[in-house]
């Protein structure tokens, strides 16, 4: 019993020991920037990978020149001119001094626009990052990925078909 408890405690300690350093989250690493003028506000848009590819997630940062203190705003995303998403500008969870989107992917290739509506001590302003080219998604075609991922479902259906046939005489 004592040995079992010791082994359990050891396992727990190992697990926690391994988990703690693994929880050190990656810093936001900006490799490319673009500038947007939203009325009186100079915004720097940062990307953690460049070029942007469809479905590939990255960190976006949105930094007004004099910081985000006292300012708020909205980000609206358009793909080929059609609104795809809108949300309030929120602080990046791993870079709290700027706004941002963490591990965020643009779902489809094409030309995207990011529209910023900013409100602050100097009034309101709107600016757009136009012609953000999002390249084709990397990896296998989605049809193939879905085919691989739904094998368990088809296996389950096969099991049901076998069970159905074997019980047909008695159930019907």
């Amino acid at each position: 019993m004592r040995k079992t408890l010791l082994a359990l405690a050891g396992t727990a300690a190992l697990l926690l020991g391994l988990t703690a350093p693994a929880l050190a989250f990656e810093p936001v690493n900006v490799v490319h920037t673009e500038k947007v003028q939203a009325g009186p506000y100079d915004l720097t848009i940062g990307f953690s990978t460049w070029p942007v590819k469809a479905m590939q997630s990255l960190d976006f940062t949105f930094a007004p020149e004099n910081g985000i203190e006292g300012k708020k705003g909205t980000l609206t995303l358009y793909r080929e001119g059609v609104e795809a998403d809108d949300s309030p500008l929120a602080r990046h969870p791993r870079k709290r001094e700027v706004w941002g989107l963490d591990i965020f992917a643009l779902p489809e290739q094409g030309t995207w626009t990011m529209k910023f509506d900013v409100e602050g001590p100097e009034g309101t302003g709107t600016g757009e990052l136009k012609n953000l080219a999002v390249m084709e998604q990397p990896g296998p075609p989605m049809g193939l990925s879905w085919a691989i991922s739904t094998i368990p479902l088809f296996g389950l259906i096969a099991l049901i078909v076998i069970a159905w046939r074997r019980t047909r005489a008695t159930v019907d």
Binding site: Q56, I103, A105
Partner: peptide, 14 residues
């Protein structure tokens, strides 16, 4: 694809 938080990606559904 990165550590996206997409719940309905093909491997997540798998």
């Amino acid at each position: 694809y990165g550590f996206d938080a997409v719940i309905d990606s093909p491997p997540h559904i798998g």
